[in-house]
Design a protein around this nucleic acid. Structure first.
Lengths: 286, 286
DNA sequence: ATGTCTTTGTGAACGCGTGCACAAAGATAC
DNA sequence: GTATCTTTGTGCACGCGTTCACAAAGACAT
């Protein structure tokens, strides 16, 4: 309970630009700036789309939300479009950013070049470790967490980056929000709860890898024509699952369950009680 | 167009688990392991959902794709569910991973604890800089790029992490794929093109910040009822886009040669100046 | 001018994802 | 056994996002 709203009305009803489109604008902008760098005057939707790795129809529709900035029969003026997208994204103004948690990751972020390239500027580095205080990272001296509120209000910071351990993230988040931050980029592997009106985006290495692993496993399974899937047929020769849990016995041990007949949709999956296919024991087996 | 396929059929038609669900499974798993740590035997969809920061109906529907693992009137068995999700994600097996590009970010990733926690294991660190070769990072000696193919084939690596500068990413990507990698996590700010069958997920700090900036700008605009917003009312005195780069050569590679000489007139830029909708005509202010 | 050619902008159809709301299933009490 | 209560599993509807396909718009040629 009390978990903060995770998202806005999602409709972005104010100016009617779909979220999915907003998420792609930076991609287009990057491609356009590369073209600009090479002094290319105009691009067609087809060219730009392939440079950005998207479908050309999608790109045109995305741009249509911004207005009609193209010329039929010719394409889009690169410089003009760069400016329009930059303005739409709010990149024509300066965005001071604070990074909280200057460990390996925080330091890497501070050093990241692409940071300052656009309108973003690292206003301060903050860490709870007194040993770090004053030490320069990426040319910026680390400040102690005690200064957090002061730094944010004095610099008018509205975007914060959390690169702390998971345990400290929610606490840091709360302080950031209380201090006036309204946008957070979270690198800690935790679900942050924030009041309405505060945006949170998360970057989670572990989750990304797990998603890749899922697809990887599926690929490996399909590879073989033999219809092996569902219940893992092959006992893994690798180490048993790192179940560090090993807690007390599950009092509800008789959990056999079973695999229903695949896609149970269409008919309510009758769950054959005490199925004959004794699947797996209650907890992480070998 | 030669540009690689961007995505799969997106439907994951093989086993019918929606992509959106797969992306949430790691979230559930994390919440479940926290519960397991505290020896909680069962959870309701409501509790687990709030811990994972999602809607309970969504969670139930997600789990329904995996099978019927709950008990009505009670909830879900934590240990059992941990195992089921782990298995579904392929986390019951060992996934060796290589990290290419051991700069600030690559080193931070190598040191990242959550990496090895699950089935993932850093099999090797690879960098093109000879000065780094042999130096241990996070306890693992960096190996030179020359060894890339050998490392991957000998260790049976199928997942690669790219943490190189943008310029090197595609090249590294091509070598990884040629060596047998079929899943890539890309931290370089570039669109990678890969052959079909290879999965790419990207993590892009700059894009995330730009998305936040967009919302931040919108918030600031709505804040004041009748204040500044919309298109900036003060259009810049029109100055030709030729500002920064005045090159004009259209010698772009073939395929558009049909109208090469045509638009060469010095002041060709004549796009929607003073367009019908009366928006601003200006361009990027340098 | 008229015609042809290229490329945009968008209406419309479709599919996926989300959330509601409720019947079904099991636990628990009696 | 029956009744009640809790919580799952899912049918259904709705809205967002993607894609197709084409008319409209402008450039260019004659």
């Amino acid at each position: 309970m009390a978990t903060g709203r995770h998202h806005r009305p999602a409709t972005s009803r104010s100016r009617g630009i779909p979220e999915a489109t907003v998420a792609r604008l930076p991609l287009y902008l990057r491609a356009l700036m590369a073209l600009s760098e090479r002094s290319v005057p105009t691009v067609s939707s087809e060219e730009l789309a392939s440079a950005a790795g998207v479908n050309s129809a999608k790109l045109r529709k995305d741009f249509s939300y911004l207005g009609s900035y193209g010329t039929r029969g010719v394409g889009y003026d690169v410089e003009y479009l760069v400016y329009q997208i930059s303005r739409e994204l709010g990149l024509t103004q300066d965005w001071p950013v604070v990074i909280v948690g200057i460990g390996n990751l925080g330091a890497a972020l501070a050093n990241y070049g692409g940071f300052a390239s656009r309108g973003f500027r690292v206003a301060a580095l903050i860490d709870a470790d007194p040993a770090l205080t004053g030490k320069p990272v990426a040319g910026i001296p680390v400040q102690h967490t005690d200064e957090l509120e002061t730094i944010i209000s004095e610099n008018g910071v509205s975007i914060g980056v959390i690169a702390t351990p998971a345990g400290a993230a929610q606490q840091v988040c709360d302080r950031l929000v209380a201090a006036g931050i309204t946008s957070i980029l979270n690198f800690a592997p935790t679900v942050l709860s924030v009041p309405e009106g505060v945006d949170v985006r998360k970057v989670d290495l572990s989750i990304e890898l797990q998603i890749l692993a899922f697809h990887e496993q599926r690929k490996a399974g399909e590879e073989l024509p033999g219809a092996e899937e569902e219940v893992d047929p092959a006992p893994h020769p690798v180490s048993p699952p790192a179940a560090t849990v090993t807690k007390r016995e599950t009092k509800r041990d008789g959990r056999d369950s079973n695999r229903d007949s695949g896609r149970g949709t269409g008919r309510d999956a009758k769950r054959p009680d005490s199925g004959p296919d004794g699947d797996l024991p209650a907890v992480m087996p070998a």
